[in-house]
């Protein structure tokens, strides 16, 4: 039977609370030396966390990637993009808050960015449609891709979505076509594209801003063809009861995808996940982007586009007689 989502985190959170309480007690009672007690608890927490994280199943990882305290794109943008200027609207009919875009500075470079966001509180989550991107989001993204291409700006994409939005309106506005056109656009951009999968990489909804020269993935992010719940419905014809098996079958973790050649590098997360030490997590993402951006800037545009083509061209596993 499947365990409750994130149940592995509960004892860790409890221990964490104990440590915080003890620290508070120590501050209130400076005459008492509780340092050895705190140190022992911290050591205990570190080893318990390490143990718990070694045993995570793929289904656990799916929930970790969806963790509501997990840093979102806005956290990374604040941490290391300077002077961001947000570009809004698809120039057709709407502006999507689930996918934001803009111009900014990274190190000494002018760049363009695309970022999917789910929101950090209920109000934001509603505004951002829980991260489900609309056709107008993808079309805004395409508009900014074209701008990046025109002005020679490297493109940095932060991917975090449960998937492309689906409803009557999304079908009417050509959700599929909006995604397809982005895939085509990204294939032809003559500027470096760095993709960072920071949380959930939900199918075509993620891929629509995730065709890149380098695809980097946070250690506890996931990326798959469908959420395990939906996969369970499609393959096992149920209401999602086989989601844990589906998660195993889909091989959605960073380790899985590195082996399959779908991502280029795993960005290690702080022990216990990016939300446990946000500043360390953002520093690591920044360093990884810097390293790859500097390397990509050495490559001329024509070669860049060809190498990107070759990168995707070779993905696939099949037999041939």
């Amino acid at each position: 039977m499947q365990s409750k989502p994130l149940s592995f985190e509960k004892p860790l959170t409890e221990l964490d609370q104990q440590i915080t309480q003890l620290r508070g007690f120590a501050e209130a009672n400076p005459e008492l030396d509780v340092t050895p007690g705190i140190e022992a608890l911290e050591k205990n927490l570190a080893s318990l966390t390490k143990q718990a994280f070694q045993k995570l199943t793929r289904w656990d990882k799916v929930w970790l990637a969806r963790h509501e305290q997990r840093p979102q794109a806005s956290t990374y943008i604040r941490a290391f993009l300077d002077d961001p200027f947000e570009l809004r609207g698809d120039r057709l009919h709407a502006d999507d808050r689930a996918l934001i875009a803009g111009l900014a500075r990274f190190d000494d470079h002018s760049i363009a960015y695309l970022a999917q966001q789910k929101g950090t509180n209920l109000e934001e989550r509603q505004e951002m449609n829980f991260g489900y991107t609309h056709p107008e989001g993808y079309r805004k993204a395409r508009r900014v891709m074209k701008l990046a291409d025109k002005f020679g700006l490297p493109l940095i994409c932060f991917v975090d979505t449960p998937g492309a939005h689906f409803d009557r309106r999304s079908e009417e506005y050509g959700q599929a076509m909006a995604i397809a056109e982005n895939l085509a656009e990204m294939a032809s951009l003559r500027v470096p594209i760095i993709v960072v999968l920071i949380g959930e990489g939900g199918s075509g909804g993620a891929l629509a801003i995730a065709v890149g020269d380098r695809v980097l993935m946070m250690e506890h992010a996931v990326y798959c063809v469908a959420p395990p719940e939906a996969c369970s419905g499609i393959v096992w014809k149920d209401q999602g009861q086989h989601a844990p098996e589906a998660a195993e079958g889909l091989k959605p973790t960073a380790d899985d995808l590195l082996k399959l050649g779908i991502i280029d590098e795993i960005i290690p997360e702080p022990i216990g996940g990016a939300h446990r030490d946000v500043s360390l997590a953002t520093r690591r993402v920044k360093m990884a982007i810097r390293k790859h951006l500097n390397a990509l800037l050495e490559i001329d545009a024509e070669q860049l586009v060809q190498e990107r083509y070759d990168r995707y061209r070779k993905i696939g596993v099949y037999g041939e007689e």
Binding site: I179, M186, L207, P252, V317
Partner: peptide
């Protein structure tokens, strides 16, 4: 579904 993210990449 049975080919997971490998299948997804065929779109790109």
């Amino acid at each position: 579904m049975q080919e997971g993210t490998l299948a997804l990449m065929q779109m790109a």
